Computed example of a mutant assay.
Amino acid sequence: MFEVYLILVTCFLLPICYLITNSLISIYHQVKTLMNIKKSTIYINNKNVLYLAKIYIHRKQWLDCITMIEFYMTQIVINETTTIVQYYNYIALCYQSINMYTIAKKYYLKAYQQEPLNKHILKNLANIYKLSGDIENANKTDQKLIELNEYQDI
């Protein structure tokens, strides 16, 4: 009987240990990246800024994420439009998460102006229109997304 109890306890604790270990590994990688970036304060590339933004978003530190991205948008020379679009998308996601839909819509529209054929941006833009109560623009954006899907399926 005692052996059955031990087996049941082990079966219950193993998944918990696995989840805790994965979380600790993730935190270790985040801290390691932050330390590497602190050491090289002269130049931070766009890849590291986007990684930091994901860390802030994962930790639900919306205002820290917004501040950091907007700071690096003015400091870093951005050669790729996809990077600036990702910056706008992350900023809009942060504003959307703190229920500031008007500002989020502004940043989603900036991202849309840079890449009007990006499905992810169109989906986010339609979602923010729905959240802010602008059903007409949400339907127009959904229609653009449908047309884009049909065009790419051809």
Rank of each mutant, 00 (worst) to 15 (best):
Y108P: 00
I98P: 06
Y129M: 09
D64V: 13
Y88D: 02
N139E: 15
M73N: 03
A92K: 03
L50C: 13
A126M: 01
N127V: 04
A92W: 07
N99R: 11
R59I: 12
Y95V: 03
K130R: 12
M100A: 05
Y95A: 03
K106P: 09
K144W: 04
H58W: 13
L109D: 05
I76R: 02
F71T: 11
M100I: 13
W62P: 06
I76F: 02
K60S: 15
A138I: 04
M73E: 00
L109T: 12
D134T: 05
L50I: 12
F71Y: 15
K119C: 07
Y129L: 01
Q143D: 15
D64K: 13
N124S: 08
T83D: 00
K106A: 14
C94D: 15
E136P: 01
N124V: 08
Y112T: 02
Y51R: 15
A53D: 09
H58A: 09
V77Y: 05
G133I: 07
A92M: 03
Q113N: 10
I146N: 12
Y90P: 00
I103W: 10
I98W: 10
I121V: 09
R59T: 06
T102C: 11
Y108Q: 02
D142V: 07
N118K: 10
Y112L: 05
V85I: 01
N99A: 14
Y87M: 11
M100F: 11
K60Y: 10
L52V: 04
E136A: 13
T74P: 05
E136L: 13
Y129V: 05
E136I: 13
K119P: 11
Q75K: 13
T81A: 04
I76L: 06
Y108S: 00
T83I: 00
V85M: 02
Y51N: 10
A126G: 02
I121M: 03
N137R: 06
